[in-house]
Design a protein around this nucleic acid. Structure first.
Lengths: 321, 321
DNA sequence: ATGAAAGCGCTAACAT
DNA sequence: ATGTTAGCGCTTTCAT
């Protein structure tokens, strides 16, 4: 039997007797034959491979993104080379070079900050999509969460449960995410003729800051009846201080976090209502855009914003007060 | 210029005038030439590629392991295909098949439980190393953390700071990790003629259980002066209850956690002394074993235990009492 | 010091 | 319906 015929049998091409085909299939099975992807790739000029570069040390934000991307890519039989840059530009260049040398058909770049960042290179021979981070070059495709919408969502939910004196404790003002969330909240309150209770309290992304920030807020606006927090960690700190100062959550003060980081949100007392950025969806979308681009149908450059959702838990249960 | 000569120039083989070599190098640079790894691989019979299969959804435990592995593999110019099985055996088979089809030279399997698990397949054509999980087949190579040693470390540290009535609140007894940590602690106490304060309290890996468990412990052993917790999450719950019951940490009761999960351990009041499993080292070791096996020098099958360390923070500062 | 040619494993086009 | 052949891009031997 010729080798060419065997190839056809395995791939279901050409015409041949079923018996012959079966014989080949059986033999292949018996011998544990696996086609050499290098030979196939050499011929086809394709690798069915993409690279995923993260600067988040495979952290809390990039992982759900990766899982979403894997979902979408797996359907296309695409395998993923993972590289973690440890936030080091040198490593990043190194990995991008390596991925290109391996002839990946596209690259997804993820991060932990949504701030625009320098692209990974100009005129790369393959399409690139930025997920959960944004390229400074707006001819690139970037997919980011809707921080502003998330802030608005939180504010509207709090108003819907009857709160009107809503404070905000969040991370450093140097983070675009923090500014956007605050903006979304302020705008939503404004639409209802309200304003935030007290100043927007910018600080750190930590529980410790949440504890301090809550004290500041209680001092400035003792009649506050809700707090929207820039992260679940901050919210936990706020919850703790509120309790220690004798305010009941949610009866006296309702609380909304941000991230839906379950170990934090569920460990909180009470469990935390929080904004979910739909990171998985960001990853899936990034992967789909990449697949389209690989298939020759690139999305126009620009930023795509994925809507956030709200996960309801005890911390905003409608008060009986 | 012949194509063969160019190849020699690029790879530094054969004899030729420096001028010729330089000319080739310059041209390659100018044209952005990258050798096709498929053609190279086809010839060399190597792929410089390994697979990493995780059943932890790239979670908290497998990620540090992955980073460690990447360290070690990167040095060998090996790229990594990542696959997440979502803990689904079907997906796992599928991915293992795919990795083998891609001719990875080895596979690392990671998980989130140290319990022995069925291997990913018998008589695979490439070496396999299990990291942070253990193959039921003890001819396989497995690298796991030292839960027992970690428990002992915690107990000895507490005794060294003058504690003698040490309780233990931990996760479900169905977890080998929980049983081992308890065993390590009990043995270490026993060597000093001590026994745990009260029963070992098995429960859940959650803060909520930590809060409840602390109440049980305080009720059974009101004079307890230290608590070793099976996880940082549990420790946080315990810390909260202690504080609410008027016990100061560390003055009245010292506290040790397990995992060194920084967002939890640092957010705790006070910051938590905790056992670190050295997950990065587990990953590095797994990768090195895999590289050795690929190089034809396989480690003998069996379980390698990586020692744990203790990270000191406020929760065990020597009391002034 | 350089060039020519074979062959890695596979598929597609063409010949039988 | 099956066999034959060329060629994907590279490295290596061997000839010049």
């Amino acid at each position: 039997m010729s080798i060419g015929t065997a190839s056809k049998a395995l791939n279901g091409r050409g015409r041949m007797r079923v018996e012959t085909r079966d014989r080949v299939l059986a033999a292949a099975e018996r011998l544990g034959f696996r086609p050499n992807p290098f030979a196939q790739g050499l011929l086809a000029g394709r690798t069915y491979t993409v690279g995923l570069v993260t600067s988040d040390s495979f952290g809390r934000f990039s992982i759900p993104v990766m899982l979403g991307a894997e979902d979408a890519l797996d359907a296309g039989q695409i395998s993923v080379f993972m590289c973690d840059t440890r936030d080091d530009p040198i490593r990043e260049r190194h990995y991008v070079e390596r991925l290109l040398a391996r002839r990946v058909e596209g690259i997804i770049v993820t991060g932990r900050r949504t701030e625009p960042r320098p692209g990974i290179g100009r005129d790369l021979p393959v399409p690139v999509v930025y997920a959960m981070t944004q390229s400074a070059d707006d001819s690139d495709v970037s997919i980011i969460p809707d921080d502003e919408g998330g802030g608005a969502l939180a504010a509207r939910h709090l108003m819907a449960t009857g709160r009107t004196r809503i404070g905000h404790v969040t991370g450093p003002q140097s983070f675009e995410a923090a500014r956007r969330r605050a903006q979304g909240m302020t705008t939503a309150l404004g639409s209802a003729g309200l304003a935030p209770a007290g100043e927007i309290l910018y600080g750190q992304w930590s529980e410790e800051w949440g504890r301090q920030g809550a004290d500041v807020l209680l001092h400035e606006s003792p009649d506050v009846d809700a707090v929207f927090c820039g992260s679940d960690q901050i919210a936990r700190g706020v919850a703790e201080t509120l309790r220690e100062r004798g305010r009941r959550v949610p009866e006296d003060v309702a609380l909304v976090g941000f991230d839906n980081w379950e170990p934090m949100a569920l460990g909180c007392r009470p469990p935390l209502t929080t904004v979910d950025m739909n990171l998985g969806e960001i990853g899936r979308l990034a992967a789909r855009h990449l697949l389209d681009a690989i298939a020759g149908d690139p999305a126009p450059g620009g930023v795509t914003i994925v809507p956030a959702g709200l996960v309801l838990r005890e911390s905003t249960r409608r008060g009986t007060s």
